[in-house]
């Protein structure tokens, strides 16, 4: 089926131009996205399935998987609560300073992950602001799991809020007001009216946040200390194996992360499809 642009004489390009654009675009796409993706799996399986299996089941790799899951399980729900709270006050209310708040929420998108890691070292490291106090109380944040969690939260916290805010703004406050007039409490309104309306965006925000949480490298590598079996996440484990020239093992662990990315993209596509449907229904109401 042709798009409406291809059928319309005013928006149609000559066939040669059309195919030139498509070919150039696809070549770029293949060289920069498809081939790197394929090469991960190729390199991972090059030495055979046994080496692959061994690489992902050895104790250090399993420890890395466990730590990565733990970090995601802590940071994603925290970001979820933050995302909903931020979206509620920003999208449903007007107050001075809203734009500044939005800018701060966007900040992690443009701060280098390495700088993020450094920031937490400066605050919680041995020579940092709270370093002395932490040491005196025998607490460790940097080069330990809490530091990894903090850095991960910083890098991933905008994703859910950023998905929710535009949608909740677009939906306005009518349905919430209707719920309140009908006697619902604030929590009931949030639970029965607001959240179901942003369900798909919320799910997408969560999976994206999750993918980034599991895959974060730069920030985590600064605060982790890379102690095998203890503070090594999957991406860090990939780096260590790679630097030790254990390429097959590095790519094997990397392939797990690549699979996670693919699953994320598949869910994203499904969610977008659903959201577009809801959007159409919504548009039909006016």
């Amino acid at each position: 089926m042709q798009t409406k642009f291809e059928r319309n004489i005013a928006t149609r390009e000559p066939a040669w131009l059309k195919w030139t654009i498509i070919s150039l675009g696809l070549l770029f796409f293949i060289f920069f996205l498809v081939m790197p993706l394929l090469s991960i799996f190729y390199e991972a399986l090059r030495r055979g399935i046994d080496v692959y299996w061994e690489s992902i089941t050895e104790p250090d790799a399993l420890a890395a998987v466990r730590l990565t899951l733990l970090v995601a399980v802590i940071s994603v729900p925290l970001n979820l609560v933050f995302g909903v709270a931020a979206a509620w006050c920003i999208a449903k209310f007007d107050f001075p300073g809203k734009h500044i708040l939005l800018t701060f929420i966007d900040l992690p998108f443009s701060v280098s992950p390495v700088v993020v890691g450094l920031m937490y070292v400066l605050v919680f490291g041995v020579n940092g602001w709270f370093g002395g106090w932490l040491q005196a109380n025998d607490l460790q944040i940097i080069f330990a799991v809490p530091g990894i969690v903090l850095a991960t939260i910083f890098v991933t916290f905008p994703f859910i809020a950023r998905e929710l805010i535009p949608l909740m703004e677009a939906q306005g406050r009518d349905e919430e007001e209707a719920a309140i007039v009908l006697g619902a409490s604030g929590w009931q309104t949030l639970w029965y009216v607001t959240l179901p309306n942003v369900k798909w965006a919320l799910i997408y925000g969560v999976i994206l946040s999750n993918a980034r949480a599991m895959g974060e490298f730069g920030a985590v590598s600064v605060v982790s200390g890379k102690i095998r079996g203890l503070t090594n996440t999957m991406p860090l484990h990939v780096e260590i194996l790679y630097n030790e020239y254990m390429f097959a093992a590095a790519f094997a662990v990397a392939s797990l992360l690549a699979l996670l990315a693919l699953v994320t993209l598949i869910i994203k596509t499904l969610v977008e499809h659903k959201a577009a449907q809801t959007q159409r229904d919504f548009a039909g109401e006016h």
Binding site: D174, E175, A184, Y192, N197, F282, E285
Partner: peptide
């Protein structure tokens, strides 16, 4: 008070039945 909104503000994700039942269920 019963309030009917200009654009109705029906809950999009609920059936007609659930919409009408909403107020009674929130008690």
């Amino acid at each position: 008070v019963g309030f009917v909104f200009q654009h109705y503000a029906l809950f999009k994700h609920m059936t007609v039945f659930d919409n009408v039942a909403f107020g009674m269920r929130m008690k």
